[in-house]
Amino acid sequence: MIDPKDTPAHSRALDAIARLEASRRRAENTVIGAPREKTTVTVELLRRLAGSKYASPELRSFAISVATGDSSWDRIEVDAQPLPPEVSDMRADPMVIWPRHWPLPSDDEPYRIPWQ
């Protein structure tokens, strides 16, 4: 009689078990949700975002006003009506750095003389 341990089927089963065990170890050692680096909002980032197929209609509309020279990306919070949802999402995300030197919406902006 043939010993079952000497059959090709037994060897294939042991190989399959070894591959399964190796896969399980790799899965256990995989880091999910690794911390990402903070992203700084730039004009280029907003331009690329507005050009993506996922951009909101509000962001696309503001991109048109930037392209025509009616506004600039750094004034998106002041001039965009309504404010694109992407801006609110980025402002609320702790991993996104919003530039401090960009104008903020405010009712207390100083009056500017038109010829200045």
Rank of each mutant, 00 (worst) to 15 (best):
P110Y: 06
N29A: 15
I76L: 06
P114S: 13
R25K: 14
S23N: 13
Q116R: 14
L49R: 10
P110T: 08
P57T: 08
H101L: 14
S72N: 09
D108T: 08
I113F: 10
D79Q: 07
A34P: 00
R25Q: 13
D107V: 11
A13E: 14
Y54A: 13
R25L: 15
A55K: 06
L49D: 00
Y111G: 04
V31E: 12
L45P: 01
R91G: 02
D3G: 01
S72A: 13
A22Q: 15
P35T: 05
P8I: 15
P57N: 12
I113S: 07
E21A: 15
S88E: 11
R48Y: 04
R26L: 14
V66P: 00
G33D: 09
D79I: 00
G51T: 03
I2M: 10
P114F: 07
R12Q: 14
D93I: 04
E86T: 07
A22V: 07
M1R: 10
H101A: 12
K5Y: 10
L45D: 03
K53Y: 02
A50D: 02
A55V: 04
P57W: 04
S88W: 02
I97L: 13
P35M: 03
R25D: 15
S11C: 03
I113N: 08
P8T: 12
L14M: 15
A18K: 13
E44D: 12
L45H: 05
R112T: 12
E58N: 11
R19H: 12
K38G: 02
L20F: 06
S88H: 06
A18W: 02
L45C: 04
R47Y: 09
P85S: 11
M90I: 08
L83D: 00
T30H: 06
A16G: 11
S56K: 05
P103Q: 09
S106G: 11
A67N: 08
D93Y: 04
L59R: 01
L46V: 07
L104K: 15
E77S: 04
R12C: 06
I17V: 13
L20E: 14
A34G: 10
W98L: 11
I2A: 12
K38A: 12
L46C: 03
R60Y: 04
P84W: 02
T39P: 01
D74S: 15
T30P: 01
G51D: 09
W98G: 09
V78K: 01
D3Q: 08
A67D: 07
I64V: 14
